[in-house]
Design a protein around this nucleic acid. Structure first.
Length: 232
DNA sequence: CCAGACGTTGTT
DNA sequence: GTCTGG
DNA sequence: CCAGACGTTGTT
DNA sequence: GTCTGG
């Protein structure tokens, strides 16, 4: 799944990458190497005239605590689930990202890769030249809620493809150019074949720094593996 | 009308 | 263990 | 998603 | 809180 990601390009670059004509965000966005739930994100909406606005990452789930967030929605069920269904018409958005983090916990895979105890963060992104790249960015399908004067969003997830399935069994619903058009389109029932068209495209993964674990940390260094202890 | 579910992930 | 904050 | 707190009273 | 099922 996706619970933490990276977004390097700022508002202007996002606007040009996704042909956005209007900026309705409340403040300029700068690079973040540690975007977390509850953060304010730039999201792209609109079909004929695309707009970038901002939304808090996470729908409120008052039934499980006043401050509980639902940050993902499974594409397999999003059109049926009562919580999401109504946002699938008129609430579809695209979440720009440079890549995302995933924590490897599977003991067998860790041992095969020669990794020690604990969780190991990986940075996952589209390869250079991949059709998942929109300029230097990727596009994840999202839902945007505009209730009670508050914008909130969730990121859709799907089954992980074989290029990264060893790290985790879920991944964001990533869209190629056609998928972005379809997801942001007017249709009440977006063509699933188009939406899922990029699902099997290979992604690249690399070990990231354990510093990413704490949301207080935020620097390009988070994308690099930890230095071996022996250097200290 | 009321009761009961409501989301995803990961872990066991 | 479980909740909150980021 | 992970990290970090998780409580009350009284005193300064 | 809000929706669904009965």
């Amino acid at each position: 799944m996706c619970g933490r990601f990276v977004r390097v390009p700022g508002t202007k670059e996002i606007m040009s990458a996704f042909s956005v004509s209007m900026d309705l965000t409340s403040r300029p966005f700068s690079p973040s190497y540690n975007v977390a739930p509850s953060h304010l994100l730039p999201v792209v909406v609109g079909s004929n005239h695309r707009v970038v606005e901002d939304a808090v990452w996470g729908f409120l789930a008052p039934w499980k605590g006043q401050n509980s967030l639902v940050i993902n929605a499974r594409v397999e069920s999003v059109f049926e689930k009562p919580t999401f269904r109504r946002f699938t018409t008129g609430g579809r958005c695209v979440i720009p990202l440079s890549g995302y983090y995933e924590w490897l916990t599977n003991e067998e895979t860790k041992s095969r890769l020669g990794l020690g105890k604990g969780k190991h963060p990986f940075f996952i992104s589209a390869e250079e030249g991949s059709s998942l790249r929109h300029h230097s960015m990727m596009a994840a399908a999202g839902l945007l809620s505009r209730e009670r004067d508050e914008r909130r969003c969730v990121m859709l997830t799907q089954s992980a493809n074989s290029s990264i399935g060893h790290i985790h069994d879920r991944m964001p619903l990533l869209l190629d150019q056609r998928g972005v058009g379809e997801w942001l389109g007017e249709s009440n029932a977006p063509n699933l074949e188009v939406i899922l068209g990029a699902s099997e495209i290979a992604l690249q993964s690399s070990q990231a720094s354990h510093e990413v674990n704490s949301v207080r940390n935020n620097s390009p260094r988070l994308l690099e593996p930890d230095l071996p202890d022996t250097l200290f």
